[in-house]
Amino acid sequence: MLLLECPYCGKRAESEFHCGGEAHIARPETPAELDDQAWAEYLYYRTNPKGLHAERWQHRHGCGRWFNALRDTVSDKVVETYKMGEPRPDASNANIPDPAKVRSA
C-alpha cells in the first residue's frame, strides 16, 4: 500500500485515496471546435510510461481534494505531490529517468 503525501493533509495511506489516471489533460475550452480525432484523443488517449508519470489523485476519504503526483511506475516511488493548477515539477534531481524528457531529447 502506497503512502501518499496529500498537499493539504500530509502523509496518508493509499486506502484514503482514489487514482484518477494521467494528469495535465485539461478539458478543451470549446469542445465543439475539436474535430473527431482531437476529441477522441482528449477522451481516450493516454500515455503509459515506464518511469515518471504525472497522475491525478484525490484524497477521497480525507479532505476530498484532487491533486497531482509524480510517480515512478517502476519503483512506485512518489517523487512529489502538488496542488491542482500547479505546473508539473522539475524532477531532474529525483534520480529517476523522466520519459517525457528522454523522448524529447
Binding site: 482514489h18 484518477g20 478539458r27 491525478r56 484525490q58 476530498g64 491542482m84 493548477g85
Partner: peptide
C-alpha cells in the same frame, strides 16, 4: 457526487 466534485475542482475551480 465524485463526478461533480472532480469537475468542480479540476476543470472549473
Amino acid at each position: 457526487f465524485q463526478h461533480m466534485e472532480d469537475y468542480l475542482q479540476t476543470e472549473w475551480p
